[in-house]
Computed example of a mutant assay.
Amino acid sequence: MREGRVLKALGGYFFVHDFESKEVYRCTIRGRLKKEDCDVVTGDLVKFDLLDDGSGVVEERLERKNSLFRPVIANIDQVIITFAILEPDLDFKLLDRLLVLAEVADLEVTICINKVELASLEVAKKRLLPYQKVGYRVIYTSVKEELGLNALKEVLKDNVSVFAGPSGVGKSSLLNAIQPGLELKVGEVSQRIKRGRHTTRHVELLSLDNQGWVADTPGFSSLDLSFITTEKLQYFFPEFINYLGQCKFSPCSHSHEPQCAVKEAVAVEEIATHRYQNYLQFLEEVENKKRGW
Rank of each mutant, 00 (worst) to 15 (best):
G165Q: 13
A9M: 05
N278C: 05
V123Q: 15
K144A: 12
F92S: 04
V143E: 15
V160K: 13
R61K: 15
V16A: 02
K133A: 14
Q179C: 09
A124E: 13
D89M: 15
R127E: 15
E231C: 05
I139W: 10
L86R: 15
F237K: 01
I241C: 07
P251A: 00
K8Q: 08
Q246R: 04
V203E: 04
S222I: 03
S21C: 01
R97K: 15
G219I: 01
I228Q: 03
N159E: 12
V169I: 08
K289G: 14
E3V: 00
E3L: 01
G212T: 12
L94E: 05
Q281H: 04
T110F: 07
I73M: 06
A267N: 09
A102E: 10
F83R: 10
K153A: 07
H198A: 11
N210D: 12
R137E: 11
L50S: 11
F282P: 02
L94V: 07
V186M: 11
E3C: 03
E59P: 07
T229N: 03
R275H: 11
E287T: 14
S207T: 13
Q191F: 02
L175T: 02
E270M: 07
G43N: 08
L208F: 08
F48D: 09
T229I: 03
E231N: 06
E204M: 12
V40S: 05
R2L: 04
Y276N: 11
S207I: 11
N176E: 04
I193H: 04
R64G: 06
D53C: 01
Y131H: 06
F69Y: 14
M1P: 05
L206W: 09
V155P: 05
K289I: 00
D37L: 12
D209C: 02
V123M: 15
